[in-house]
Amino acid sequence: MRLARYGNWLLWALLMAAVIGVLGWGGRPQMVGLFIASGLAVGSLYALAGIGIVVLYRATGVLNFAGGAAGAAGAMTAWQLTAWGFWEPLGWLACLLVATAITLFYGRLIAPRLAWRETVVKAVATLGFALIILGAISFLWADDPRSISLPTDAVGVRLLGMRITATRLLLFAASIGIVIGIWLFLARTTIGLQMRALASDRDLAALMGIPILRVETIAWAIAGLLAGFTGLMFADLIRLEPSVITFMVIPGIAAAICGRLENLVVVLIGGLSMGVIENMLTMSPVLRGVRPIAPFVIAALVLLYYQRGQRLTFGGRD
């Protein structure tokens, strides 16, 4: 068993090396470095979106399509407050608060009414909520060029003749830090223990007297905070457009799939790999046009790899 796990990691490392080697062959090393750095930033965003999805899914059984929309609402609020001349950190805080409030609203008021439906129906219902948020944001803020910049954008380090801003480093560090933080939270705290109990068997956990409502509320709040942070980072690094941020969840789900909707470390590695491969594809003259397809192809391949050797039989619950 352990051997198989190391085997998986080895296979992943070999594949990544092969992909980067093949695509980067003949390119200037500096360009390859730039593409990898750029890919790690995008990949961190995919991973963060995926982590939010997985934490929530494990604890509540809801696959949340509305995380991107909540992040977009937060980022637009931050922009608005800054435009009104408020102190910038207040805007960032508002971004986190708005995203958390929106997510908690759904988690406390709407999700319980759907508790009896199938997982897939619960998932698509969140898309309805995402549409409400997106429509409301687009109504409040007519389309206009906007941007958010963080003070960390001005600070940067030079590496191999390229400049990498502190924001990118912060994002990368944050995505690793968040995974470690959540892992510790799940492993060391009572709430974390209860969350794991809910994840492994909801009915049994309920029978054992685990305060489901409280645990779920905390999970929704964590997901909301993550959505707000991802939205803010996305707005700074990629662009501040609500619809783009909203539909960021789809590659986020691809990252979540890599971790089988449970293993956060694999979600992180998967998301980062997706970002890097997507950016490296720019170096291929044939594939550069379709590079955004990378997360979906990778997720589909990973799913198939996980299912290898399984026969079509009476598997347990999904």
Partner: peptide, 15 residues
Amino acid sequence: NLSFVIFGAGLLHAV
């Protein structure tokens, strides 16, 4: 944009 909101709300309500 508002019809998006109405649409989404209707979807949730019906589900």
